[in-house]
Structures are given as structure tokens and as C-alpha cells.
């Protein structure tokens, strides 16, 4: 029994750390722009497929696959900003960009459906079948890799935000765009950069989720829905909260699968989401901010 709990704990952390990668991107974008990119998770799917094909073409070089997914994600991020968010920024309607990205999401999913078909792809990396045993529990090398890579990425991102000039600029813009502009930071550049970083993370997250997920063109939908839950539970724009909430959701997912039924995952996660909204509308960790009138 204890080993089952431990084993599911490990699985939960594996999935959770990937959700963190995806949700961090959403949170970063929300932080600087107060906008939601609904197509974010479709970049995850695109990343997964890019990694799949690159890994297969290069006869099993999974790291090349991850790198390619990261690059493609970055390009998508740049495109999303240039084509959707930048033109709509000054329309004064906060819902229009969200609606436009819902359109992009439908478009991407169904374009992939036409190109790749609905049958799930079996994405096996060279590391999927190597197993590390720890006591009664085990961990595939693939999953160990996921934990290591996402931890390193999250730490690097955190350090970037805290210690580099660009990271500070990013935080300055998220706090007050006008003042940041006065400080000589070009907000447009920072926003573009945020999209590129966020989407690169999503692409990379996809490359690592690919082997874990049921890889179809619609894989993104199940991910985005959880990523939204994570950013709300963690408090939109709050990096620490997102990390904690991501791990919680990962754990909920694996324990629900073990002890209830996989069909209940979304129900439990969203019950938690609604509960959070009812109790603490700005998220579990975020402080309350009053609109400046």
C-alpha cells in the first residue's frame, strides 16, 4: 500500500512538473499582458509532434527532438504575439484576444487532425523502457529525465526573472507598463520576449509530455484545461503559486487514477478550481490587489 502511494506520488510529480512548465508560460503572459493565450496548449501538442518526428528521423535522438520542439514553440510564440496580441492590444476589449486565440486553437487542432489523423501516436523514446528501481517503487529513465529537465528549466527561469536585467524588466512591465516605459524599457520588446519564452516552454513541455500523453491532435485540450486550473489555483501571474498548484494537480491526477477512476480527474481538479474561486478569488498564494481607479 505504501509503495503504491509512493509510486503514484512519483508519477504525480512527473506529470505535475510538466504541467508547471506549461502553466508557467500562461502565467508569464498573464503577468505582463493580463491576457490569456488559449492556443498555448496547442503549442504543447505541436511541440510533442515535432519532437516525435524529429526523434524518429534522427533515429532516436530524443534531445534533438526536445530542442526542435523548443525552437518551434518559440517561433509560434513570436507569431501569436505578432499576429494576434499586438494588433489587438489597444482595442480596449479584454475579451477579444482571448476569443481570437480560441479561434487559433480550433484552427490548429483541426489542421493537425487533417494532417496527422485521429489515431494516437506511440511516442517511445530510447529512455521509455529503462527502469530505475528505488525500494519497491520504480521510475523510467524517461520520467527521471522529465523531472530533471523541468526542474532545471524552472530554476533557470526563476533565476532569469530574479537576477537578469531582462527578467527584471519583465517583472517591471508586469507591475506597471507605463512606469516601465519611463524607465527606458520597451514594453513591446518585453512582451514579445515573454511570448517567445512562454511558448518555448510549452513546446519543450510538449516534447516531454508526448511520451506520457495519448498523443493526438487534441492532446492540448486536456492539458490546457488543467493548465488553466493550475494558474487560477496558483493565482494568475504568480510564479511560486503556479509551481505549487502544478504539483498539486499532478498529484491529484495520479491519486485519482489510482484510487477513484481516471474519469474523475477533471471533476476533482475543477471542483478544486471552483472551490478556490469561491474562497480566494485571486488564488491560493496571491495577495489581494485593488484596482487603481
Amino acid at each position: 500500500m505504501l509503495t503504491v502511494v509512493l509510486q503514484q506520488g512519483i508519477n504525480g510529480i512527473v506529470v505535475g512538473s510538466l504541467y508547471v512548465l506549461v502553466a508557467l508560460g500562461l502565467t508569464l503572459i498573464y503577468g505582463v499582458l493580463v491576457q490569456i493565450n488559449f492556443a498555448h496548449a496547442d503549442i504543447v501538442t505541436v511541440g510533442a509532434f515535432v519532437a516525435y518526428f524529429v526523434t524518429h528521423w534522427l533515429s532516436g535522438n530524443y534531445f534533438a527532438g526536445i530542442a526542435a520542439a523548443l525552437a518551434v514553440g518559440a517561433v509560434f510564440g513570436w507569431l501569436m504575439n505578432a499576429a494576434i496580441f499586438a494588433p489587438l492590444r489597444d482595442r480596449g476589449n479584454e475579451l477579444l484576444p482571448l476569443i481570437a486565440t480560441i479561434g487559433v486553437s480550433i484552427m490548429l487542432q483541426n489542421a493537425m487532425l487533417v494532417l496527422l489523423g485521429p489515431i494516437p501516436y506511440a511516442f517511445n523514446t530510447p529512455y521509455s523502457n529503462e527502469v530505475i528501481r528505488l525500494g519497491g517503487t520504480f521510475l523510467t529513465v524517461q520520467n527521471a529525465l522529465i523531472i530533471i529537465v523541468s526542474t532545471i528549466t524552472i530554476v533557470l527561469l526563476y533565476a532569469f526573472m530574479k537576477f537578469t536585467f531582462l527578467g527584471k524588466a519583465l517583472r517591471a512591465v508586469s507591475q506597471d507598463r507605463e512606469t516601465a516605459g519611463l524607465m527606458g524599457i520597451n514594453p513591446n520588446y518585453v512582451i514579445m520576449l515573454t511570448f517567445v519564452i512562454a511558448s518555448a516552454l510549452a513546446g519543450m513541455g510538449g516534447a516531454m509530455l508526448g511520451p506520457v500523453l495519448v498523443l493526438t491532435p487534441f492532446a492540448g485540450t486536456s492539458v490546457i484545461v488543467k493548465a488553466f486550473a493550475i494558474v487560477i489555483i496558483g493565482g494568475f501571474g504568480n510564479v511560486e503559486g503556479t509551481i505549487i498548484a502544478g504539483l498539486i494537480v499532478g498529484l491529484i491526477e495520479s491519486y485519482t487514477t489510482q484510487f477513484l477512476d481516471p474519469g474523475w480527474i477533471d471533476i476533482v481538479v475543477f471542483a478544486l478550481l471552483l472551490l478556490t474561486l469561491a474562497v480566494r478569488p485571486t488564488g491560493l498564494v496571491a495577495e489581494r490587489r485593488e484596482e487603481n481607479v
Binding site: A100, G103, V104, S105, I106, M107, L108, Q109, N110
Partner: peptide, 8 residues
């Protein structure tokens, strides 16, 4: 796809 493109 038509729906998605037209919304955007």
C-alpha cells in the same frame, strides 16, 4: 477549420 479561421 473554417470556424477557427473565421473567428480569428
Amino acid at each position: 477549420i473554417v470556424y477557427g479561421v473565421s473567428v480569428t
